[in-house]
């Protein structure tokens, strides 16, 4: 029963990006178009699931005092594998993602879930939690990148949907969407939406939002 709760909670209600405010850097930086965003989301899910399950399996043998460095090394090993895979099978995307694959190591979702969840739960629950949080991250990054690619280049997954002015169509792409500030605006508005939903929820006492942030 808990399995599905751990899996579904982080999708919206406890979304790592919009509610827990974790893992923002890559969510903002690689969301310019959908293809790299999808690959990034898959990498984060893979690393998150691997590290959460491994740390959960090792939780009784890891000494408390050096747990952070061990966790970081486990995460970094997973990231090395993912990085080599992307370099092998998706060369162009790996150039676009540049340093951001390596920066999965310092993505706070991964260390945050390891610290807050995997150290205190069994491997099956940790798997559900990791998958849920990974999908929650993927959800946000895909929405943002869809909006940015559609409005900024008139296409999704490099397939043109809005006929561009320069090709004889009617759509003039919004160049701003291709630059960094638009990611802030879009995620800001997403947070606005999600938090307004929370405020109007009847069952208010079960969720305490970090209002101070």
């Amino acid at each position: 029963m808990n399995f599905f709760k751990y899996l579904s909670d982080p999708l919206i209600n406890e979304n790592p990006v919009m509610v827990q405010i974790l893992g923002l850097c890559s969510a903002l930086a690689v969301s310019r178009s959908m293809e790299p965003a999808l690959i990034m989301a898959m990498s984060v899910i893979a690393v998150l699931v691997f590290s959460n399950v491994v740390i959960s399996l090792l939780r009784s043998v890891i000494p408390r005092s050096i747990r952070l460095i061990l966790e970081v090394i486990i995460i970094a090993s997973a990231v090395i594998v993912v990085d080599e895979l992307i370099k092998t099978f998706a060369v162009e995307v790996s150039e676009y993602l540049s340093v951001f694959v390596g920066l999965i190591i310092t993505n706070c979702i991964i260390l945050g879930r390891a610290e807050a969840f995997a150290l205190g739960h069994g491997p099956l629950d940790s798997f559900a939690d990791a998958l849920g949080n990974g999908l929650g991250y993927a959800f946000v990054i895909l929405i943002v990148s869809a909006a940015r690619e559609l409005l900024g280049a008139g296409s999704l997954f490099n397939v043109n949907l809005l006929p561009l002015l320069e090709d004889g169509g009617w759509y003039r792409p919004n160049q701003l969407m291709l630059y960094a500030p638009s990611a802030f605006f879009l995620i800001g508005f997403l947070i606005w939406g999600v938090r307004s939903m929370h405020i109007f929820q009847v069952n208010k006492s079960t969720h305490r939002l970090p209002r101070h942030l």
Partner: peptide, 8 residues
């Protein structure tokens, strides 16, 4: 406005 306050 409510949901916008703070982080948004």
């Amino acid at each position: 406005p409510g949901g916008m306050d703070g982080l948004g």
